[in-house]
Simulated scan of single mutants.
Amino acid sequence: MRRWFWVVGALAAIGIGAAVYLLRPVTGPVRDLTLVGDVTRGNYLIRLGGCVACHTNNQAGTGFLAGGMGLQTQFGTFVPPNITSDPNAGIGGWTLTQFSDAMSNGMGPQGNLYPVFPYENYTLMSDQDIVDLYTALMATAPVSTPAAESQIPFPFNIRLAMAGWKNLFFKPARFVPDADQSDIYNRGKYLAYGPAHCVACHSPRNALGALDWGQALSGSPGGTGGKAPSLTPAALLEAGYDVDSLAQTLEDGFTPGFDVLGAAMGEVIGDGTSQWTLEDRQAIATYLLAD
């Protein structure tokens, strides 16, 4: 009996220790939220960050940023929420601190956020970009109709479990430029890993939906991130791209092979990259094609 007592006690201690570790808050560097936001820069970030393509359902015509179409994954169907300035249906009641916490640490007013919202990428954004984006979203036209409810089956609907997921897979940080690379390269890498979150769709994920950072931009076979091609230099060169042609494809959707990109990438181009500056399209093309 004494032996079993010690075995049970040890297992209980291990369980408690694991729970404490997995449920601890996950936070990154403190942001400077005293910066002055700029609506014009923020409106550009709305396009740069893919907010329109994700949070606007053009087919339903429910309104700009009033909630997107459901994203089907093996963990359920996630409906991007209303992020207009409406205080009830949207995020108009959020403070800048709450918005920053969601973008940087994956923690919303309702609790831990699911990683289908790419906070793994947004955490890399600069403090000024976060403040500018918040300022622009608070200036959007409010839409009082909430987005449809996500359909997430048990046990994935237990939001507290996301605390464990974050402790296992999420390391909030800020983008650090490579001092050995050019400004245009670093800008492109910042976009690909940060606000534009190319790696979120174009990288494989493990069985729990976490990005395989070691295979970033090598393509996704499907699953949580959907099916997306490789964006490695070798794959892009094989498809006939150089910096100028890739930047052009991000504007008009036409590929070097005289194809037209449609489906999800078509929406990304139409609602996002086509409205980027030429400099940003060339920057991301420069980074993606770099050896």
Score class of each variant (00 low, 15 high):
Asn82Pro: 01
Asn121Leu: 02
Ile158Arg: 11
Gly270Arg: 12
Asp129Pro: 01
Ala10Asn: 02
Ser218Pro: 04
Leu160Gln: 15
Arg174Cys: 07
Pro233Cys: 11
Trp94Lys: 04
Tyr114Pro: 00
Gly17Phe: 11
Leu246Glu: 05
Asn206Val: 09
Ile130Glu: 00
Leu289Glu: 03
Leu261Ser: 10
Leu208Gln: 14
Pro118Tyr: 03
Ala200Arg: 05
Thr135Gly: 01
Val199Trp: 02
His55Leu: 06
Ala53Asp: 07
Asp32Ala: 07
Asn186Asp: 10
Ile46Val: 14
Cys198Gln: 01
Pro29Gly: 11
Pro153Ile: 06
Tyr185Arg: 07
Leu211Ser: 00
Ala283Cys: 10
Tyr119Asn: 03
Gln151Phe: 08
Leu236Asp: 04
Ala147Arg: 00
Phe117Thr: 07
Asp252Cys: 08
Gly253Val: 07
Asp271Ala: 13
Thr255Arg: 07
Val116Trp: 03
Leu33Phe: 04
Ala147Phe: 00
Gly272Glu: 02
Ser126Phe: 11
Ser245Lys: 10
Gly272His: 00
Arg174Glu: 11
Leu22Thr: 04
Ala136Cys: 08
Pro29Gln: 11
Thr277Met: 08
Thr232Leu: 13
Tyr134Arg: 04
Leu231Tyr: 10
Tyr119Asp: 02
Ala239Val: 02
Tyr122Pro: 01
Gln248Met: 13
Ala234Ile: 05
Val143Met: 04
Glu120Tyr: 12
Gln110Val: 13
Phe169Lys: 08
Thr277Gly: 11
Tyr114Asn: 14
Val268Met: 15
Ala89Gly: 07
Cys198Leu: 07
Phe5Cys: 08
Asp86Trp: 03
Thr84Arg: 04
Phe5Gly: 13
Pro80Phe: 10
His197Ser: 13
Gln215Ile: 05
Gly214Leu: 09
Trp4Met: 12
Asp32Met: 06
Arg47Glu: 12
Asp38Phe: 07
Thr95Leu: 10
Tyr185Phe: 15
Ala228Leu: 05
Gly49Ser: 12
Ala136Ser: 11
Thr224Leu: 15
Thr27Leu: 12
His55Val: 01
Ser218Ala: 13
Thr27His: 14
Ile91Ser: 03
Leu133Met: 12
Val176Cys: 07
